[in-house]
Design a protein around this nucleic acid. Structure first.
Ligand code: ZN
Length: 561
DNA sequence: CGATTTTGACCTGCGC
DNA sequence: GCGCAGGTCAAAATCG
């Protein structure tokens, strides 16, 4: 987990050093100027960095994007560290720089000095005689030593920054979520009341909002918040015990929200007297056994409905997200030669979280992981990241269904969101369960569906004009690979109606252009579009995946079986 | 030997 | 009611 970050950073160093070396007078300033904008976009930059990187990387190694990406991904997942993460980190670092400007001033100045010295020496060396060379060597040695030192320090800072950024990202997501929720319920009444209201509102659109779900979200958020606050200082020192912090945080959160977990468990128990083990999930049994508790049912059903799927390139059978999973089933998906695997969280007996893993039929390097439910137990940091992200995404999705969500859309934000084009969030409320799809695949496009922006308009006449218009211009280029079952755009696309039939057939979904650009869809779009959300989400997930913790390797190997 | 995976049976919702 | 498809269960097989 933590280590992963460190490693990642290590890789990024070369890059940074590169910049610094070149920096001198001209490069430095320019670079910084660019950074500022990014800084503002904090989350975006993270996401963007990953996206942007491809271009950057291409310059360095123009060779094969596809291959390269795939490889990185693979390495990534299987081990941890390398590739994408690094890129991301770099971006993160850059961004962070601004944020942490205070702390960083010292180091940065050092860098400048060092660089300058190098530059001078180099110049001198070239022109001067041998005697000077000796001096230069000495000086060089010193400089190098200093340089190393600086790099080390830099690394530390980077680590700090990355941590902070991650936390920040997560926090931001939660914040966004909360804000939206807040807006939705202008009046602050009891949660139940709120919930009910929400439900009623939601029902308009057929989307059900889960009360529990909403509560849960904050729960994870709380934990994370705590984590952020405390650890930041600690991590700065690089003490290698992040888990402790997290655990504490999570414990606190749990204590606070204990009600929820208990609630869940009670529910489960009621459903299944014999095996507490789980199954709380089973809708069937719930209906049979607890017909009396409509509320709970609805809640559960709702929660169950919310899904967050992550598409990422990975050749590993499963991406490591920090959780322990037990496979409980496998089925052949209808339109896909690749089987779909069902996993459930085994970190806690009653944990309702489940996930489905399936490979994209079109591009088998893409692994689609769909998460469902929220953990009701403490999670290790690595797991926290993914869990909080998914829960936040899910909550966003749900809250997004609400009309009041609008207003969040901010042109600037939108622009930012789109810039990072790499990550896309797609909301689909159509199916039995609303799903947020985060696309971390950013390959140029193996399938080559590159479609020019204009095409988007064509295919999606149904989309709200503003949305379409906004997205179109901003999409630099489409990326497009036809997604697995949802079409993706550089921005996000949302489909909210669609018959169930389409859901059934993933491929059919593409055309899914909602003829209904009803208010709801617009609102949803707005929310989804919220850059902070998308970017943060993408960034978080990307980092999570990249940051796979040690276990990942074991998991991978096990899965191979 | 416990934990996990495999895998066919089973269940439920849905469209016809 | 039937068949299909998505999910889940759980006994048996494996793994570590
Ligand atoms: Zn769990």
């Amino acid at each position: 987990m933590e280590k992963g970050w460190g490693l990642t950073l290590g890789n990024s160093d070369p890059v940074s050093s590169f910049f610094h070396n070149k920096t001198n007078s001209t490069a430095g300033p320019v670079f910084r100027l660019k950074q500022h904008p990014d800084m503002l976009q904090f989350p975006v930059s993270l996401a963007g960095s990953r996206e942007d990187r491809p271009g950057t990387s291409s310059s360095s190694s123009p060779a094969s994007d596809d291959n390269r990406v795939a490889v990185d991904e693979v390495d990534f997942f299987s081990d941890k560290k390398h590739g994408v993460v690094d890129e991301k980190k770099t971006g993160t670092v850059t961004v962070k720089t601004e944020t942490t400007s205070h702390g960083r001033d010292g180091p940065s100045s050092d860098h400048l000095d060092v660089n300058t010295g190098l530059h001078l020496l180099t110049v001198d060396g070239g022109k001067s005689s041998e005697t000077e060379d000796k001096r230069e060597k000495n000086a060089l040695a010193e400089l190098q030593a200093e340089f190393k030192r600086v790099n080390a320090e830099n690394q530390k800072l980077r680590n700090m920054i990355s941590h902070v950024s991650n936390n920040y990202t997560a926090l931001q997501m939660h914040l966004v979520t909360l804000m939206q929720q807040h807006r939705n319920r202008e009046a602050k009444s009891t949660q139940e009341h709120e919930i009910q209201e929400v439900k009623s509102e939601v029902k308009k659109d057929e989307v059900v909002v889960p009360r529990q779900f909403m509560e849960l979200v904050p729960h994870s958020g709380t934990a994370e918040t705590d984590e952020m606050t405390h650890p930041s200082s600690e991590e700065r020192t690089r003490s290698g015990s992040p888990p402790n912090n997290v655990e504490v945080a999570s414990k606190d959160s749990i204590k606070g929200k204990n009600e929820i977990s208990q609630f869940n468990q009670e529910e489960r128990d009621g459903k299944r007297e014999e095996s507490p083990e789980s199954d709380g999930w089973g809708p069937n049994k719930a209906q049979k056994l607890n017909p009396a508790k409509p509320i709970e049912q609805s809640t559960e059903a709702t929660m169950r409905k919310a899904r967050v799927s992550v598409r990422a390139r990975s050749e590993a059978p499963m991406i490591s997200d920090g959780c322990q999973w037990r496979k409980y089933g496998q089925k052949m998906a209808k339109g896909n030669p690749c089987p779909r695997a069902y996993y459930r969280c085994t970190m806690a007996v009653g944990c309702p979280v489940r996930k489905q893993v399936q490979r994209c039929a079109e591009d088998r390097t893409i692994l689609i992981t769909t998460y469902e439910g929220n953990h009701n137990h403490p999670l290790p940091p690595a797991a926290m990241a993914m869990a909080s992200t998914t829960s936040a995404a899910a909550s966003m999705l749900l809250s997004g269904s609400m009309p009041s969500a609008d207003g969040i859309m901010n042109p600037n934000l939108l622009a930012r969101t789109i810039l990072p084009s790499s990550s896309m969030a797609t909301i689909s409320a159509s199916a039995p369960f609303p799903t947020v799809t985060l696309d971390l695949t950013q390959s140029p496009n193996p399938l080559k569906f590159q479609r020019p922006p204009p095409q988007f308009d064509g295919p999606f006449p149904g989309l709200p004009q503003n949305l379409a218009s906004l997205s179109a211009p901003q999409l630099p280029q489409a990326f497009g690979q036809p997604p697995f079952n949802q079409s993706k755009f550089s921005g996000l696309q949302l489909s909210k109606d669609m018959g169930s039939s389409q859901l059934g057939h993933p491929q059919l979904q593409q055309p899914q252009l909602p003829t209904l650009a009803d208010k709801v869809s617009a609102a949803t779009a707005a929310i989804t579009t919220d850059p902070s959300f998308t970017a943060a989400l993408a960034a978080a997930i990307t980092s999570i995946i990249g940051g796979a913790h040690p276990n990942s390797s074991s998991n991978t190997s096990n899965n191979d079986k």
